[in-house]
Every structure is written in structure tokens, then in C-alpha cells.
Amino acid sequence: MKKALIFQGGWQGHEPEAVAHILADILKEENYQVTITDTLETLVKEDLSAYDLIIPNWTQGEITDQQLQPLLKAVAEGTGLAGLHGGMGDSFRTSVDYQFMVGGQWVAHPGNDGVRYTVNIIDADHPLTDGMADFTVVSEQYYLHVDPAVSVHATTRFPVAEGPYQANGEVDMPVVWTKKWGKGNVYYNSLGHVADIVRMPEVIKLMKRGMVWATR
């Protein structure tokens, strides 16, 4: 049986506890043993290499070097890393090593919540997106600074909401990407502002496939 660790907390606006349980339920359906923790001290006190998958679900906040180094090491040695929205893409804003591993960092959501936008599947032959069609989301549209080394599987087009960034013209922003960190697989999905968005069938499908793909 595969083992997964979800650490949840940080800014409560993203409903981290509710989202953690949605992700845990997906994994349990795939026959994973899932541990959920609400403290970053777990990263120090437990042997992270015993987990096949780790899911950060901790928006903003601070992580110490003592807490971060075991996570970086575990993923580099083969433990998978997967997550979504701010729980993985806007964690620990002062930790560039964490952002380097993830492959990107949130910087803006023009128009805030309630923006209607399209998620474009661009890699329909990949197991992560096989058989999926473009779909519409009404939520935050994440603008991210992204590592050019990532493999992109879905995008969304900016601008939709008004803002000074419009002067730069249209840009296709990654929504779903994968990359490697040493021997570890890394999966990120920018959707999932609150639990109701995570429960969308398309997001559930993407997260199920992504978490399974990232697993050691």
C-alpha cells in the first residue's frame, strides 16, 4: 500500500482542512494510506522517505530551514510531490528553495475571485489529461512566475480581468505542470481556491491523475 502525507494549514481562506480531506479521500479510493498533519514539525519528526507522496496544502506561512531540508531531500530521493492552488503554489513566500522545487510561485490573481475563464488542455495525449476537454472555471485565475523547465499540460489565457498587466498583450499561463526534482516527480495544479472548486469533476480527475503520477 502506498503511503501519502498531507500537511495542511496556513491562511484559512483556502479552506486547507476541507481541501486536505478531499484529497485524502481521492487517495484512499486509490488504496493509499493517508496521514494528515496540521504542523510543519511533522517534516522534522517523521522519516519523510517512508512516504511515497507528500502533498503541501499550506498557503503562505513560514517554514524554517530545519523543516524544509528534509522535504527537499525526500523529494530529491524519490518521494513524489503534488498539490494545488495556493496550498502548494503560494506556500512559504520567502523560501526560494521551496519555490525552485515546486516550479513556480503565485504572484497575482487579477480580478480576484469570481473570474470566469477557460482552462485549455494542451497535452491531450498525456496520461494526466488524456480524454479531457477544455473547461470553464469561475474562481481566481492564477498568474504565476514559472520555471521554464516545467512540462505544461494545461493553460489559461490572460488577460481576462482588467489591470496594468494588459499592456503586455495576451499570454498563456500554465495551469497544470510537471517537473523533476532529483529522482522525485513534482505535479502542480493552480485550480482549487476553495473546497467547492476542488470538488469540480475536472479538478478531481486532474488531481487524482496528478497525485498518482507523482507517487514514487
Results as ranks from 00 to 15, higher is better:
59 T>P: 01
113 D>Q: 13
60 Q>E: 14
167 A>D: 14
174 P>Q: 05
35 T>P: 00
3 K>V: 02
202 E>L: 07
98 Y>W: 13
193 H>D: 10
21 H>S: 04
57 N>Q: 10
53 L>Q: 11
173 M>F: 03
119 V>P: 04
139 S>C: 01
30 E>R: 12
137 V>T: 04
23 L>H: 11
48 L>T: 02
72 L>R: 03
84 L>T: 06
188 Y>Q: 10
53 L>H: 06
16 P>I: 08
3 K>G: 03
118 T>W: 08
196 D>Y: 08
31 N>C: 09
123 D>G: 02
171 V>G: 01
133 A>H: 14
144 L>P: 00
204 I>C: 08
49 S>P: 00
10 G>W: 11
177 W>H: 08
20 A>E: 09
144 L>M: 15
109 H>F: 03
174 P>D: 10
14 H>W: 06
148 P>Y: 08
98 Y>N: 10
181 W>H: 12
167 A>E: 15
70 P>D: 12
129 T>N: 09
39 T>H: 13
167 A>N: 11
4 A>F: 03
120 N>A: 04
146 V>C: 13
40 L>H: 05
101 M>S: 02
19 V>F: 05
135 F>N: 13
194 V>T: 14
104 G>T: 06
141 Q>W: 02
156 T>A: 13
23 L>S: 05
36 I>K: 08
146 V>I: 15
19 V>P: 01
212 V>N: 05
79 T>Q: 10
69 Q>M: 12
59 T>G: 06
199 R>A: 09
163 G>T: 01
143 Y>L: 15
20 A>I: 02
64 T>P: 04
199 R>F: 03
198 V>Q: 12
